[in-house]
Nucleic acid binder design. Structure first.
Lengths: 223, 223
DNA sequence: GATTCTATATATAACTG
DNA sequence: TCAGTTATATATAGAAT
């Protein structure tokens, strides 16, 4: 009977955590598929839960492939000094904090996300400014927790071929027709993808949801 | 006042579709972050909406990098003949249907998903069997629609380092501490990731949500 | 531990300015 | 178009099985 308002924090109870994971994983996949359908968005999902050795994918292994391929087709122009800036910035901090280890920065090239761009308007020093999250947390407690281990990745990107977009939502499609669509999709190759990380926020590379914009915190999904 | 039960189909009205996209994108990101927090799952999100040239990411560009890096660390052992089988299977069909074009199969190697595995127990010929989706559709109409263009990708995978998993959900974490966690995460490198596409389903590479298992259809999130 | 069953929390379609 | 508002649909925590 869903009593609590969901205390947004890591669930310590193993079985409870697993139960929640299963339920929410299912819900998340459904949400993804709905967004895909409702907004004409190509989508895929893969889940390597801590509870199952075999991941589940949506809509298929090849569907995932296709999404990743799109990232790789992004024009090099978008590759940025901005990303380099970020790497440099984070690299410095990491080095500073863990001088005894060689910091392993995620590879910035050849992964399909190289043209990522981050405009960091906030001064790096601002990072150290203490910020009270409570006020925000009350609105969205999620921001206060941290987590890690398994991972979830969600991506939504535009595809460059409008011809196939409006495949009518036929409620009685047979598999033959589906097969045809598959081929259309697989043979399609559009390099016009447009990518880049925009905005004025500086985000942190781990599973929280806080952005720093002009030394102020905000939550991604609030805008 | 949310009147309709959400007709699970592509929204033809442009403005309505955009509005829905914005709301649901926000909701999806929140869900991802919550799953991340509640279940100790590392998560990230990127959204290239058709409406914004600049994508939004969660939790950060580097966070996304980290997730992709994990996929690349997956042991080669998992690479499969199974995947090859799938490629061969789909390749044949594509060639057959579009002999005039060289079918471009998603690259199977060097993308972090090469060990994808699909056990296709259903006979290929079974694919052509006509299947009425209506009964299923009533339960979950989503399965009947197709879509495409933009894309969504969601991934959930286990991380091998339990030490950092249980970072308590402190409600008043300051940025300094967060910085520290970032470094921990970035310096961590665990090659024990376990991957592979399991199950007996044969899925199709596009944005629907139907699986074929022994010539029967089912929806990913229902199990 | 997994599944099913509700009561409640949350998401969001349609409305409004 | 865009940002609130609100009624209703949906998701899901906790309990029961």
């Amino acid at each position: 009977m869903t009593r609590k308002k969901v205390k947004l924090a890591y669930i310590n109870n193993d079985s409870a955590r697993k139960a929640t994971f299963k339920k929410r994983k299912k819900g998340l996949m459904k949400k993804v598929s709905e967004l895909s359908t409702l907004c004409g968005i190509d989508a895929c999902a893969i889940m390597y839960s801590p509870y199952e050795s075999q991941p589940e994918v949506w809509p298929s292994p090849m569907g995932v492939q296709r999404v990743l391929s799109k990232f790789r087709k992004i024009p090099e122009m978008e590759q940025s000094k901005k990303m380099v800036n970020q790497e440099t910035f984070l690299g410095q901090r990491i080095t500073k904090a863990k001088p005894d280890r060689k910091s392993r920065l995620p590879r910035v090239k050849h992964d399909g996300f190289e043209r990522s761009r981050v405009v960091d308007r906030s001064k790096p020093q601002g990072i150290n400014k203490r910020v009270d999250l409570l006020s925000k947390a009350s609105h969205n407690p999620q921001g206060s927790s941290v987590d890690t281990t398994p991972s979830v990745m969600t991506t939504v990107m535009p595809e460059a071929t409008p011809e196939k977009v409006q495949v009518e939502a036929n409620n009685n499609v047979d598999l033959m027709q589906r097969q045809h669509w598959i081929m259309e999709l697989m043979n399609n190759n559009n390099p016009k993808s447009h990518v880049g990380f925009g905005g004025d926020e500086m985000m942190f590379p781990f599973g929280d949801n806080i952005n720093i914009n002009n030394n102020a915190l905000w939550f991604p999904w609030e805008r």
